[in-house]
Amino acid sequence: MANKRVETGRGRKPGVVKASKKASTSNRAFYLIIAVIAIGGIAALTYASSKSNEIVNASPVDTTLPTVKSEGYVMGSSTAPLEVIEFGDFECPQCGRFATLTEPDVRKNLVDAGKIRLRYIDFPLPMHPHTWNASRAAACADAQGKFWEMHDALFANQDRWDGAATNNPDKVLKQLGDQIVPDKSKFEQCIDSKEMQAKVQAHWKLAEARHVNGTPTFVIGDQQIGQSLTYDQFKQLVDSAIAKSGKTAPAASGDTAKSTTVGGKKGDAKKGQ
C-alpha cells in the first residue's frame, strides 16, 4: 500500500496517470458503497423508530395460570372496574422510569378517578444485587401502612442504594424509610431481622408461576405486557380492557371513590382477575 500511495500521491514517481485512473475507479466504487450503506442505515433507523410506539411484548393472559389473589400492595378503590397488576423490581431502572415518569399520571387520571386499582407485586430479578433488600424494606414500611410512600422513595433514590452505589444498601434503605415510617426502630429491626423475606419470596414465586420474565410486566385485562409503557399506551390498554369487560368506568375524575392505600398484609381479599 505504501508503494501505491506514493505512486498515486502527488507525483513522486512515474506511472501516476495510470494509477490515478485506477484510483479514481476505485474511489467511485467506494463512494457508491458508502452511499448505499448510508441510505440503508438511515432507512433501518427510520423503520426502527417508526415501530417504537408499538406494544410488542403483549400476549394474552393464560387463564390456566394461578390467579393473583391478595398478594402484593394495592392502591385504589375496591370498586374500580379494573385491576392492573405490575410485577416490578425496585432496582430495575425501567421500573424506576415508569414509577417516576408515568405512574404519577396513572395515579392521578386512572386510580384517583376510580377507573383502576393498581396492584404492585415484587419480582426481584437475579442480576440486581440489592433488590431483595429493597423489597424487604418496602414490606417493612407496609407493615406501618407506608408501602406506597416507600415505593416512591425507593424508585426516586435508586442511584443511592443500588448495586453500583453501595455495598451496604440496608443503611441507605433505613435512612429513606426513617423519613417515612412512624416507628423508626420497629422499621429498622424489621430490616435487620429480614422478617419480610418470606413475603417477598411468595411474591417472587407468584411472578415465576405466571411466567413473568422481566420487569416491569403489567397485567391489564386479558393482556400481559412485558415492557415499560408510556401513559398513552397504558391508558389505551386500560380503556380497551374496561370496554371488553363490559363494566362502566366512572365518567370523569372527582366524582368517584377516593384513592385508598391498602397494604397487602392487611389484605384486599379481592381476586386479581
Binding site: 442505515g41 417504537s52 410488542v56 442480576m127 420487569t215 415492557q227 415499560s228
Partner: peptide, 25 residues
C-alpha cells in the same frame, strides 16, 4: 460509518426513541 449508525441507534434507544426498555437478565 457502520459504527456511526450503531451509535445513533443506541443513542435513540437510550432516549427511548427506539423500542421500549425492560429489565431482563
Amino acid at each position: 460509518l457502520a459504527g456511526l449508525f450503531l451509535g445513533v441507534y443506541l443513542t435513540m434507544y437510550k432516549f427511548g426513541i427506539i423500542g421500549s426498555l425492560a429489565c431482563n437478565v
